[in-house]
Design a protein around this nucleic acid. Structure first.
Lengths: 207, 207
DNA sequence: AGCATAAACGGACCACGGTCCACTTTCTAT
DNA sequence: ATAGAAAGTGGACCGTGGTCCGTTTATGCT
């Protein structure tokens, strides 16, 4: 992501633009570090980076986009771990174990970056359509399909992923007092039940 | 809800306050009807009702609170249907059928009031803690417990309820093009799998 | 009726996300 | 080197949710 490599017919990002992007990311990261994600207002980031507010929006589109950019590294690393990393997350493990490890890893991610993850999904447009979420969705679907969930895999993936929503995890953790271990165990239980449960004959219970 | 019955030691709402609350609700409902939920800004509602903006906040606390108030009738009716209504939603049906009917009914509610439901849950504070959601959660938990999910019922209820999130349903329906029937069938499949699946031995797959 | 008091009111005010557009800087072709 | 085009910039501006506080009004008591 953000690679300034010139693709055929596609011009490279102007160098002042690239410099400002980096300044903005640094400023934002600094603000997160010293005053928490809530302090990352677009004005503050712009001021801190010494650029105009318009530039922040030109580069990142929205506050959610800026947050997503801050998470880019960790999301890429996560994706890599899912695709090429060691078991139980990576491909050298049984699908069910990978499924459970996936949720566990997402929950652990919330532990350190929860507020950022929530902020990145805060706007209505980026809520469900953002890139990392798509990746997670496809990954989940693939695992479910491998396990034998068939055509229902995609919607099942949506439903399961909803249980890993950073906002929900944070709520369960901070407001309700569940430990992250309990939540991870609940994920394991949920997915295990789903995966080992019978498929529903399509006529039963239909309206 | 909103009953002006004087409880011992607790004074009744002042009559001008009650009148203004009604005016505001009427104005908001009117705006929703003629220009959609997005047109329900706090200023617009205040102007339409002929009161000051501060009054809107005093009565409903926030935009989400106002939206929740607009949904009060339908949420109460839904709750009543779950507790005392006819099968398959009400108590005269098997728990599994009730569970499936519950989700189906929530999804159908999204069909007509989706944007309002989403707006009522839009703010971070009201996202998970609002009253109707609590009711749904308790109801789900009760059903799961009846079915024999034991101690895990509460967290399982949280996870299942996440799959019925109005924002998610709207996204799947409008952006991804799924029909509400497909979504309802997916719910039925999901819950059926969860309920008939094996419980996970607590040591397996743990970190 | 008159009064004291607490509740309710209203609209000025603030912070923030987001838009816009006149101006500046970089790039590229000559 | 230079000029024109394209990309980038900055900050004034806007709409919105939410707060605050001086003023008004309903209500219960005498």
């Amino acid at each position: 992501m953000n690679t300034p490599v010139p693709i055929a017919g596609e011009s490279v990002e102007r160098c002042d633009a690239a410099r400002n992007r980096q300044r903005l990311l640094d400023a934002a990261a600094l603000l997160v570090a010293e005053r928490g994600p809530d302090a990352v207002t677009m004005d503050a980031v712009a001021a801190r980076a010494g650029v105009g507010k318009g530039t922040v929006f030109r580069r990142f589109g929205s506050r959610a986009g800026l947050m997503a950019a801050l998470l880019d590294h960790s999301e890429s690393a996560f994706q890599y771990a899912c695709m090429y990393g060691p078991p139980p997350l990576g491909p050298d493990a049984e699908p069910i174990a990978r499924l459970i490890a996936f949720g566990r890893a997402r929950i652990e991610l919330v532990e350190v970056q929860g507020e950022l993850l929530r902020a990145a999904e805060s706007s209505v447009e980026t809520r469900h359509g953002n890139a990392p979420r798509q990746v997670s969705l496809i990954h989940l679907e693939m695992l479910l399909r491998t396990i034998g969930m068939g055509a229902r895999s995609r919607l099942l993936a949506h439903s399961l992923l909803a249980a890993l929503d950073p906002g929900l995890i944070l709520y369960q953790w901070h407001e309700l007092g569940y430990s992250l271990k309990e939540l991870a165990d609940n994920w394991a239980d949920l997915t295990h039940r789903v995966v080992t449960g019978d498929s529903l004959p399509s006529t039963e219970y239909s309206t």
